[in-house]
Design a protein around this nucleic acid. Structure first.
Length: 294
DNA sequence: CACGCGTGGTT
DNA sequence: TAACCAAGCGT
């Protein structure tokens, strides 16, 4: 079937590499709460760890439990999100905290199914929290895992644009059977993809799988497959939303409509972006202007 | 299922 | 410098 090494070989190599090279991130400390892990996973969705670290510190100090966050306003969550990007994640994290208070006795739920039901939590985040916070070895599949497995086991440069059932099966087949190893494996494969088996310029010379990697053995053939169109940015509604929300985040109180005109001059696009932000619960119209939601 | 959704560092 | 890339989610 696959030209790559057996799972047993992968486990030995990757788990040994993890012991020596895992970064000491605060949410990996034994004493970190499930809430701390949960916040770290949501913040890390599409955002580099270097930018997550200070925001995670600030959030968990200010809101040490789900109840602490739920007792504050969603607008404060949006403000504290700072410039992590995709601010809808902040609003959804606040809503998730509120649901934990209402339905889960103020705790992060422990099962994959309950986690998946929370706003802002998809298959990846539910599996990651179950595994990393609660030791339940769900199959964790993110972009790093997909890239490492596709290269090492199938000999291709990169995974398809979206997750396939074949990749899910490959990831499940790659899991160690023993529980502790499986949970460590989840973190270790991601870490290998983040630090060594990277998308742009992989550090194959320091990879623990160098001599068994199917992609390496095939001569590192380039990717052949459908290409995802690059995201537009300049002049998009998304850029407008970002500019408008930045003004509100940096203001202590409500902002007059005229101040938002300075942030984005095109009136039609400004109006469209503002309506979208209001729909998403990131902005509230108030008397004579706009504010973060109370 | 393809697309919209932020931001900033790297190449 | 424009394009690419980063622990995805919701519709």
């Amino acid at each position: 079937m696959s030209p790559g090494p057996s799972p047993a070989v992968l486990h030995e190599r990757v788990l040994t590499w993890w012991d020596e090279h895992a970064r000491p991130l605060p949410w990996r400390e034994p004493g970190c709460s499930a809430w701390g892990v949960f916040v770290s996973e949501v913040m890390s969705q599409q955002t580099p760890i270097a930018r997550v670290l200070p925001a995670w510190q600030a959030w968990t100090e200010r809101w040490p439990t789900p109840a602490d966050l739920a007792a504050d306003s969603p607008g404060e969550a949006v403000r504290m999100w700072q410039r992590l990007g995709y601010p809808r994640r902040a609003r959804r994290l606040w809503e998730a905290a509120a649901q934990m208070v209402e339905r889960h006795d103020g705790q992060v739920p422990r099962t994959h199914e309950e986690l998946l039901a929370l706003p802002g939590v998809g298959a990846y985040t539910a599996a990651a929290v179950a595994s990393f916070a609660f030791g339940d070895p769900q199959v964790v599949i993110d972009t790093n895992v997909r890239r490492v497995l596709v290269r090492a086991r199938e000999g291709r440069a990169q995974a398809a644009p979206s997750l396939t059932t074949a990749e899910s099966a490959l990831a499940a087949d790659s899991m160690p059977r023993e529980v502790d190893d499986a949970n460590t494996w989840n973190a270790a494969v991601m870490e290998l993809g983040a630090l060594v088996c990277t998308a742009r310029s992989p550090g194959c010379d320091r990879c623990p799988l160098l001599d068994v990697c199917a992609w390496q053995r095939a001569g590192c053939p380039p990717y052949e497959g459908p290409v995802r169109r690059a995201q537009a940015w300049h002049g998009t509604d998304r850029q407008a939303r970002g500019a408008l929300l930045a003004v509100l985040r940096e203001s202590a109180g409500p902002v007059a409509g005229s101040a938002l005109e300075d942030a984005w001059s095109d009136a039609a696009q400004r109006g469209r972006a503002l309506r979208g932000l209001v729909e998403d619960g990131l902005v509230e119209p108030v008397d004579g202007g706009y504010a973060l939601p109370a």
